[in-house]
Design a protein around this nucleic acid. Sequence first.
DNA 1: TATATTTGCTTTCAAAAAGTAAGTAGTTAC
DNA 2: GTAACTACTTACTTTTTGAAAGCAAATATA
Lengths: 102, 102
Amino acid sequence: MLYVRDSLDVINGKWKMMILISLMNGNRRFTEIERSIPKITSKVLAKELKDLEENQLITRTVHDSYPVLVEYSTTAYVKTLDKVLRELHNWGINHRKKIFGK
Amino acid sequence: MLYVRDSLDVINGKWKMMILISLMNGNRRFTEIERSIPKITSKVLAKELKDLEENQLITRTVHDSYPVLVEYSTTAYVKTLDKVLRELHNWGINHRKKIFGK
DNA sequence: TATATTTGCTTTCAAAAAGTAAGTAGTTAC
DNA sequence: GTAACTACTTACTTTTTGAAAGCAAATATA
């Protein structure tokens, strides 16, 4: 289990996974993403997006149109997180059952 | 991916997973655990152990011996996290390869 | 034309979390 | 008697988070 630490260093945090999932669900614009994640604030979202970009998990594209659009999308690399996310999802379902009964 | 949030609420944080892994590896005493996790401080460890206990992921047993011993161990429930941890481990290996090259 | 609203953020200030270092009570080893 | 170990706690500093407001440019509404 030595390498769990390495994973956590990248994807740990209250929001990173949720942002990745939001992007995988097709949200691309800043405000879309913000609205898709309950309770996140724009300051935190802006910061986390920068973080994720630095870690090459997402890309930020500015479209030179009128009005200027900024689009975020996941890189191919994020697909490698699929299994992690699936297991977290499964465990979440399970845990919810345990806590709230049935 | 709706339930990832529920999982994160419980096992998120810089240290929780590492503490669970340490316990799964056989460490049971406060100081053992502390020594097994680089850079964790006793204050943070004490707090996280309380958290994990409240979430019923670990148990704390005080042995009324001389000297008094305190032992921590994971509950059966933690076994359900096995897959999550395994995937995080795998991804960590993979990520390390990507960053440092093979 | 004037006002309101949207987008993609940034700024300011307050609160919470995390880290650092030292301390403590009891026990035991030297 | 001095030092060391165990399982923490306390006091203080630094970092991170959060809440709220602001902003420039553009578009929509009245």
